[in-house]
């Protein structure tokens, strides 16, 4: 657990600054069951441009299932996810074909996995990992791709001298930063993050969180971050949704939910934080 309570230093910059009145993403009545087990039920919310939403709850609360549905990797049994495309048209993910969804995933969206090995190609160079996403959107000038990759490595505090090394030679924290660079190089508008600071040392977490916070506010990104760590939610998000047993039981401004929790389960979560 990080001792990073940042009520007055939450990343308030992005939200609303350039926000359109139309939400970027709308989830309506999402539900998903596995046999008799309901992994998530009746989840509805709107995400606006520049907003960072944290989904918190313990293991098994349905937050990872929800993230998979929101990012189009899992089809819900009920409800829909709509996304406002770059051309301003809002589309229902279910009506897109596979090629359209893949294109969205490669360009306008990012997905940061807890395990960097899931989001990186471990055997190819760091430069190629970052460059690959650029090539996928049509860049083909080798020198320019390499320059862009170099500048992104610097942005995530990886020495450009390591550009030709494969991520399997990197430490856990470096791999996670490389994964973030790979995701952000195409300038996505929405990034999904699944326990982004998961298996990292506390000191490495602090550095990563600070970096993510800066990038999110500088780029005006929207993000949906799944985390069981309330300190991560406090530091990164504007709003929080608390999940329990597949349902959203409490939602609001992050500092409001964490400082004035209403629901019994939220009070339990907040009171369970060990003081550092």
């Amino acid at each position: 657990m990080l001792d990073v309570t940042a009520n007055s230093t939450a990343p308030g910059a992005g939200a609303g600054a350039a926000a359109s009145d139309e939400p970027l993403l709308v989830a309506a009545n999402l539900g998903k069951s596995y046999g008799r087990l309901a992994a998530c039920r009746d989840v509805s919310f709107e995400l606006y441009s520049g907003e960072v939403l944290a989904i918190v709850g313990e293991s098994g609360s349905g937050k990872s299932t929800l993230l998979q549905i929101l990012s189009g990797q899992l089809t819900p049994n009920t409800g829909s996810v709509s996304y406002r495309m770059r051309d301003g048209v809002t589309r229902d993910l279910a009506t897109m074909d596979e090629a359209e969804r893949r294109f969205l995933f490669r360009t306008d969206w990012g997905f940061v996995h807890q395990d960097p090995a899931m989001g990186l190609r471990m055997a190819v160079s760091a430069g190629a990992n970052v460059g690959e996403r650029l090539m996928a959107v049509g860049h083909n000038h080798y020198g320019k791709i390499r320059d862009t990759a170099t500048s992104w490595l610097e942005r995530v505090e990886i020495s450009p001298e390591r550009i030709d090394d494969a991520p399997r030679t990197y430490s856990g924290g470096m791999r996670q930063r490389l994964q973030i660079a790979r995701n952000l190089v195409t300038e996505p508008r929405l990034v999904f993050m699944d326990e982004p600071t998961g298996g990292l040392d506390v000191s490495v977490q602090a550095r990563l969180l600070d970096m993510m916070r800066t990038l999110v506010s500088e780029l005006g990104l929207s993000a949906i971050v799944v985390t069981h760590d309330l300190a991560v939610a406090r530091l990164l998000s504007h709003r929080v949704m608390v999940m329990q047993g597949g349902r959203v039981i409490e939602t609001g401004l992050t500092d409001q939910v964490l400082d004035d929790p209403r629901e019994p389960y939220t009070q339990l979560l907040v009171s369970s934080i060990l003081p550092a």
Partner: peptide
């Protein structure tokens, strides 16, 4: 929540008793 964020950005500043610093 969005309105309150807007109010905090453009209208209300708050000096708390303790600094909650980011590492």
């Amino acid at each position: 929540p969005r309105e309150i964020l807007g109010v905090r950005r453009d209208t209300i500043g708050y000096v708390s008793q303790f600094l909650r610093a980011v590492p």
